[in-house]
Design a protein around this nucleic acid. Structure first.
Lengths: 340, 340
DNA sequence: GCGCCATTCGCAAACGATTGTATTCTCCCG
DNA sequence: CGGGAGAATACAATCGTTTGCGAATGGCGC
C-alpha cells in the first residue's frame, strides 16, 4: 500500500545528500549545516510527511524509545493509575510503554524483565511486589535505567518512588487515637512484601509514639492482600483480642475482609469497632459503611516514576539516584467513630 | 556493559558464514543447510547465549513483534482483565504489548493509534469506546491487522470480539420477570457508545418479547458510565415513574448510582426496588446489598482478541474476518427480590 | 597570490540481521 | 574423463538511519 517516505526521498527532493538531510533534521546536529539548507530540508520533510523509521534509528543509536513497565498484576485496580500516570508523561517525550505482566507468581518477574530487555527497552519501571530481589541491583549496575515504583530495594542503588507509609499509617493511628481509641489492632499484609512489612513496623512505631501500649499480639498477618485473607486474619485477631475497639488494616481489601469478620462476630462496623483501610481504591465510598482510609497518590507515583526515569535515561551513568517519598492523605468516611 | 553476542560471533565460532548461521537458526530455512551444521551452529548459539537483535531483524523483515493495545481509560478496572488476557496469549508467541491510553477524550484515539503505528506495531487491539470511527475502516484497508474488542465498527470489515449484549440484558430482564416484576425501568448509558446504545435496544427488545409493556418513557439515559450520572438518571427515572419495581442498569457503576437514588427517595434496594448491574466489576459482592449483575468475560475477550489478531497477522490479507460473540452469565446476589 | 582556517557538505562505514544469487564441491552418468 | 545436477555454503545487497572523516568552498590575512 502507501510507500513509506524515507530519508533518501527527502534528501533527493531537497537536492542534498542523505547525511546532510539527517543532520538537518536532527536539532542536535543541525548547527553544523547551513541554516538555509536546514530550512529547505525541513520543508521538504514536512511536505512529504517524512517520519524517521524507529527501527533503523534504533539499530544505529541503540535505543528504542520505549520503556517497560512491570506490574505484578494488571487486574489489580491499583496499577491502573500508575500506568496511566507514567504513560502520560512518557508519551510527552516520545516514549511508548511496553507492559510486562508478572501475574504468574513472583519468581518470574525476572523473566518478564528479561523479555522486556530482549525487546531492548531503554528503561524500566518496576512495580513488582517482592522485596530484595538480587537481580534488581544487577540491573542498575548493568547500565539499564531502572526506577522502582511503590516498592523499595534492599540495595538502594536504584531510585524508588514510594509513599511514606510511616506517615500514612500514622494518619490512621492518630485519627483513631484522636477519636478516643486506645486498644487498636492491626491486620498486616504479608511480610514478604515491602509494603506489608513497612506498614506493620510503622504501626508498631506509632503505637509506641502515642503510648498506646504496643503489643505484637494485637497484630495478625494476612496471607495475601485480598478480602478473604483479610477476613480470616480479622477473625482470629478479633477473637484473640476481643477488647479491641479499632483495627488498622494494611490495605483496603483487607479492611473489607475485616468488615466481614466483624459482622460474622455479630458486631457492627464503626459502632462497635472502627476500621481504617489503606490505598483508597475506587468505590470505597459506596461500601457500607463508606470506608475511612489513607489515600495514596498512585497516579503521581506513575508520573514521578516516569519523570525520574526520563532523567536517568537522559544523563546515562551519573545521576543522583534520589528516591522520592510522596505523602499520603487521610480520607475520613464513616467506618470510624468514637468507641462506644 | 556486557558485549552483546551477535550473529557474526556465532558464525565465526561455528566456522560458517553469517548467512549460513542465519539460515541454520531459522526453522523455516534450516532445511536448506546441512543438518550437521545446523546442529553445530545451534550449539554454538546456545553456548554463547545468542539472541537475535529485534531491531535489526525488524528492520529487515519489517515487523516489530509488538502489538498495540488501545484503551479508552487505563484507570477503568474493566480493562485490566482485557489487557492481562491479551498479554498472556501474545507473550506466548513472542509478541509484546505496547499500551496506548486514549484517556484524554475520544477524538484523539486516532492520535494514539498513529503514535502506535509510528512505532511500527504489527497489529492493533482496539478497545476504544466510540462508535463508528471512519479511520478504523481505513486502518483495515491500509493493511494494518486490527481487531476490535468490546466494541463494534459500523463498517464490519474489521473483526470484533464482543459480548452478546442482547443475551446479557435478556438475562437481567428475564431474571426480574421470573421474580414477578412487570414494571421495569432502564438506566441507559450514553448512546454515543456502542455499548450504551445496544443495551438500550436490547432492553426494549426483551420487554417486547416478554410482553412487559415496553415504554421509552421508562428509560433514562445517563450522561456517562459513572456512579454520579447513574445517580442523576436514576433519580429522574424513579420520580417520573414512581411505580417501577425494578431497574436494569446498563453498567455496574450506573447501578450503584441507582442504589443512591433509591435511598435518596427513602426507599430500599431489593426490598422496594430491585436493581441489576452489568459487567460484574470487582467488589460488587461487598456492596450493600451485594449486587445482582451480568458477568461479562472480559479476560476471555482479551485472549480471544489476541488470538484473532495473531491469526490475522499470520495470514496477511486473506482471512475470514469472523467476529466473535461471547456469552455473558447472570450472577444473582441480593439486589434483586420479588416485588413487595 | 598563496596558504590556512572555518564552514558546509558528501562519502561510506557502520548497526545486525535476512535473503536472492553466485560459487564451490561432490557425485554420478554417459 | 568431462560435464551437469544438486546440495551446501559463501557473497553481497538490503532495510533506513547515524556519524566519523575527508573533500570541497570561500573568505581572509600576510
Amino acid at each position: 500500500m502507501e510507500e513509506r517516505t524515507t530519508l533518501k526521498d527527502v534528501a533527493r527532493e531537497a537536492g542534498v545528500h542523505v547525511s546532510t538531510a539527517s543532520r538537518a533534521l536532527n536539532p542536535l546536529t543541525s548547527s553544523v549545516v547551513n541554516p538555509e539548507t536546514v530550512e529547505r530540508v525541513t520543508a521538504v520533510a514536512r511536505r512529504l510527511g517524512y517520519r524517521p523509521h524507529p527501527l533503523a534509528r534504533g539499530l544505529r543509536t541503540n535505543q528504542t524509545m520505549s520503556v517497560g513497565v512491570v506490574i505484578p498484576d494488571v487486574e489489580n485496580p491499583l496499577f491502573g493509575p500508575i500506568i496511566a500516570g507514567a504513560e502520560s508523561v512518557l508519551v510527552e517525550d516520545g516514549y511508548s510503554v511496553l507492559i510486562g505482566n508478572a501475574e504468574r507468581g513472583g519468581i518470574d518477574a525476572e523473566d518478564v524483565v528479561n523479555d522486556l530487555l530482549e525487546h531492548r527497552v531503554d528503561g524500566l519501571l518496576l512495580a513488582t511486589a517482592g522485596r530484595s530481589d538480587r537481580w534488581i541491583a544487577d540491573l542498575g549496575r548493568q547500565g539499564v535505567a531502572t526506577v522502582l515504583v511503590n516498592r523499595e530495594a534492599d540495595d538502594s542503588s536504584v531510585p524508588a518512588i514510594l509513599c511514606d507509609d510511616h506517615a500514612g499509617i500514622g494518619l490512621a493511628v492518630q485519627h483513631l487515637a484522636n477519636l478516643g481509641h486506645r486498644r487498636i489492632g492491626h491486620v498486616a499484609g504479608p511480610a514478604t512484601l515491602s509494603t506489608g512489612l513497612f506498614r506493620r513496623q510503622a504501626f508498631m512505631s506509632w503505637m509506641r509514639i502515642l503510648e498506646l501500649a504496643p503489643d505484637e499480639n494485637q497484630i495478625e498477618e494476612a496471607e495475601w492482600f485480598q478480602v478473604e485473607p483479610g477476613y480470616k486474619a480479622g477473625l482470629t485477631l478479633l477473637t484473640r483480642c476481643p477488647d479491641l475497639t479499632a483495627v488498622v488494616a494494611a490495605n483496603d481489601l483487607l479492611a473489607l475482609g475485616v468488615y466481614r469478620a466483624i459482622r460474622e462476630l455479630g458486631r457492627e462496623v464503626a459502632v462497635d469497632i472502627s476500621v481504617t483501610g489503606y490505598n483508597d481504591i475506587p468505590l470505597l465510598d459506596m461500601m457500607q459503611p463508606p470506608m475511612t482510609t489513607v489515600r495514596v497518590p498512585y497516579r503521581q507515583m506513575g508520573t514521578q516514576g516516569a519523570a525520574t526515569l526520563l532523567d536517568l535515561m537522559a544523563r546515562r551513568g551519573d545521576g543522583s539516584t534520589a528516591s522520592i517519598k510522596l505523602t499520603p492523605t487521610l480520607v475520613v468516611r464513616s467506618s470510624t467513630a468514637p468507641p462506644s
